[in-house]
């Protein structure tokens, strides 16, 4: 152990710091897995840079919630021109804090998926997914066909903690949408056959793959990943009669961008057919356009009816729902 090591290391970190200091024309804040080599980021960057003759820089944080916190913390100091990867449950917070500004995208000129019914003047959806419980078709021949059947049955269930994970928050929304004020009683019934509640999606999903549970909370698109990447269709999403709640991932213009024209151009690009064909097979969510060609695996996914509350309603009730859940399942 000697000093040389530490010097080399400091020089190395310094070089890295300087590399990023060369400012790009457009800085996009997003979450980590969006810009990983297997995510949509690198491909989108190449295509957009070719179109605009500009440079684009991604800054990745842990996840959507961390993204909101980052721009909230940075306020007017932020370097973000565009924010990509918030979800609809966070929209209200973003709006309240004045972190975004209206965009110039005209949804009427784009064949948007009807179920989204999107008309927001600040947020542009770029993909979405329905929450769903995934099961192993080789183990369960007759899966539950409704949320009520899941909750009142005795199948082993794993889901994520709504205090730390967005799918967990989605289930909170779902149970509330189906049960209304009866939600606490439903949570108590579910708790009787819940194996565990994990802090993140990956722990829950991995435990399910290890055979710890019959059902795990994920997305209707999860089976597509297994078909395309693992070549197996044993994992399927249970189709619930009450309908499913959706998670819509959105992008927006930072309120503090100094290049709104280019930022708007990037938002329009996210909605282009080109980008919409890349996102589903890299981010494993559904496209927001109707006219996108996708691998055959996507045709085999269930197509549930969409239920649930508006983004503003979710934002307003989130903390009450969390408390309600906490009380019901801790009993």
């Amino acid at each position: 152990m000697n000093i040389r090591h530490s010097l080399a290391c400091a020089a190395f970190a310094l070089a890295a710091g300087q590399a990023s200091a060369a400012a790009a024309d457009l800085t996009v804040y997003t979450y980590e897995s969006f810009i990983s080599s297997w995510g949509p980021g690198p491909e989108l960057k190449t295509r957009f840079e070719a179109q605009c003759g500009c440079t684009l820089e991604f800054v990745g944080v842990e996840d959507g919630v961390a993204l909101l916190n980052r721009v909230r913390l940075e306020g007017a100091n932020t370097r973000a021109d565009v924010i990509v990867g918030l979800d609809d449950s966070l929209i209200k917070d973003v709006r309240t804090h004045g972190l975004v500004q209206p965009h110039s995208v005209d949804f009427a000129s784009i064949p948007m998926v009807a179920a989204l019914a999107w008309a927001d003047d600040s947020f542009v959806p770029f993909d979405f997914g329905y929450f769903a419980f995934i099961y192993d078709h080789q183990k369960i021949g007759a899966p539950v066909d409704s949320l009520a059947a899941l909750i009142d049955g005795n199948a082993r269930v794993i889901y994520q903690d709504p205090r730390t994970s967005t799918p967990g928050l989605g289930l909170l929304h779902w149970v509330r949408a189906v049960y209304g004020d009866e939600a606490p009683a439903a949570w108590t019934r579910l708790a009787r056959h819940t194996v565990t509640v994990t802090s993140g999606w990956s722990e829950a999903y991995n435990m399910f793959l290890q055979g710890e549970a019959d059902y795990v909370l994920s997305y209707t698109t999860s089976p597509a990943y297994h078909i395309v990447s693992d070549g197996t269709d044993r994992y399927r999403a249970a189709h619930f009669a009450e309908g499913h709640v959706a998670q819509v991932e959105v992008a927006a213009l930072s309120a503090h961008t100094d290049n709104p024209a280019l930022a708007n151009r990037f938002l329009a690009f996210l909605l282009s057919r080109e980008a919409q064909e890349i996102i589903p097979v890299t981010n494993w969510m559904l496209p927001v356009r109707d006219d996108v060609k996708l691998p055959e695996a996507f045709d085999r996914l269930i197509r549930p009816a969409r239920i649930g509350f508006s983004a503003d309603e979710i934002g307003a009730s989130r903390s009450i729902w969390v408390r309600e859940w906490r009380e019901a399942v801790s009993r």
Binding site: A66, R163, T196, V197, S199, A204, R326, S330
Partner: peptide, 23 residues
Amino acid sequence: LALGGGPRATTLEVAIYQALKFD
């Protein structure tokens, strides 16, 4: 959280994480 079988087995640290990160 993962091995404790759910929110009955919660520590203060979860609450701090929630307070600082989610809320």
